[in-house]
Structure formats: C-alpha cells, structure tokens
Design a protein around this nucleic acid. Sequence first.
DNA 1: GCACGATACATTGTTATCCGAGGTAATAAG
DNA 2: CTTATTACCTCGGATAACAATGTATCGTGC
Lengths: 133, 133
Amino acid sequence: MPKLALKLSLKGPEAEQPDRWEAQLRKGAVEMAALASLWQGRLYGLEIIRYLETHSQMALAEGTIYPVLNRLKTEGLLTSEWVEAEAGHPRKYYSLTDAGRERLREMAKAWTSFANGLSRLLEPVLNEKEKTQ
Amino acid sequence: MPKLALKLSLKGPEAEQPDRWEAQLRKGAVEMAALASLWQGRLYGLEIIRYLETHSQMALAEGTIYPVLNRLKTEGLLTSEWVEAEAGHPRKYYSLTDAGRERLREMAKAWTSFANGLSRLLEPVLNEKEKTQ
DNA sequence: GCACGATACATTGTTATCCGAGGTAATAAG
DNA sequence: CTTATTACCTCGGATAACAATGTATCGTGC
C-alpha cells in the first residue's frame, strides 16, 4: 500500500451544507485567529492549527493557514524564523510584531462589536420568543 | 447638477484595508442575518437592509442582499409576495418558511458556539494580559 | 544505503461570496 | 416631459477558504 491518505470527501448529490456554511463564517475571522494564537508566544505552522482546534473549535486546513501566515508576514504583522528540531523537519516559528499586536487589538474590538450586534439580532431566535407578526 | 451620487471610492495606492476586512467577516453571517431580520414578521428588500443597519450595525449593499434573498428563496427557506404600496414602486415582501425558521435556529446555535470559541481566544488580548513567552 | 513513514512547509485550482457600478420600473412633483 | 424618489435586479472584479498535491528532512528497519 503506497499511501492511502484520501480523506473521503464523499460528495453526495445534495449533501453537506452545514460544512460549507461554517467555512464562510470562518472567512475574515481566520486572520484574527492566527494572530491571536501567537499572543502568548511563538508557534510554528502546524502548531497554530492544533492550537486553534483546541482553544476554539476552529479546524483549519494546512492549505488555509500557510497563505494566511505569508499574507500577515507581508503586511508586517508577524515575523518568522527557522528553528532546527532535535528530530524531523525544521520548523518555521512565527511571532507577532508590535504592529501585529496593535492590529490584533483593533480586530478584537471590531470583532466584539460585530459579534454583539449579531447576538442582539439572534436573541429572539435563541429565546424562542416568536411574535405573531 | 445631474446626479452626483458618486460614493467616492478614492482607491489610493495602498489605502483602505479595515473596510475590506469587515467585509470578509460578513461573509457567511449575511444569510443568517437576513433570516434573523424576518423572525418577527415580513419585510421587503430595502427594509431588511435598514433593519440590519439599525439592529446590528451591519451595513449591507443592495448588490449583496438581493442575490442572498434569491438564494434563500431557492433553498425554500423563505417566500416572497408582491404588495402594492399606496405610493411608489411595489414592494416584494419576504417571509420565513418553517424550514427557514428551523434552519435559522441551527445557524444561531452554530454561530453562538463559534463566537464563544473566538471570544475565549481573544480574552487575553482584550484583557491585555500579556505573558512574556 | 535505501525504502518507507512521519513531520512540516508550500502552491495551485476550484468555488463561493461581497459589493460597486450600472440598469429597469413605477409613481409623484415641478 | 423631465427630474427625483423608491424599489428591485444583475454583472463583473476582487478576495478568500481549502482540497489536492508536491517538496524537503529526518529516523528506522532491512
């Protein structure tokens, strides 16, 4: 057996909708999440993925995180450095710059405001207080 | 003066970034917001825009809302009916279907979970509790 | 040595979405 | 009849997530 790593997409005729919707929710929040994962210290790529999965139920693919990290690096929001591991492939550790820290603060505030607005909107739904028009 | 309604995009060499980021945040949340605006009764297109702007600081363009409404209608989550206005152009009122109501409940739950995860992630940032690595 | 698996980084193509810019229709006022 | 207002609708560009795929490095078993 050579590899057999197929992840079994199983795309049925009219299956999977919730999955795609949550992907859309992630848009825009991903950059903020990546920055946030580095708030307490440097991490390398795959570590960021695991961190976010553990700390926020946000499951990102590798094909998502690497472009994002490069984007943020280009914008000067974080830096990277290669570090040799005792075993295995060398790792590229990312750290927040001062600009990145500042930007994350702004994003966090904007996010909070945005989330509060939506929460207010969803209140009747979650509390099931229907009003018959 | 003929019209002069140009909204002044003013796309400088490296200007406007915060605006585009918030647009990304909106992706995915828009469908939910549109459904939520109809929870308490029917509204027509422009009214939905105004409702969301008032109740959640979410400013949507017309070019955004109409395709979304058609999408939701195609999925059977809402229905529409033309209603003559006493004055001006007739209005197309949208209402939630039972399926739409049910879907909105699911979305609201998923959103809450997602938002809570991110809130947890941002806690250190908002509380400014840096830990020197 | 060399095949193999594990770990890690990286890129490409597909698909979905927001929204600016533009258009149409109906009514009312000048 | 021209203009303004209100409303609905559509097209095209830009951006983003991510599945699939590829590359590089090291350790282990033979």
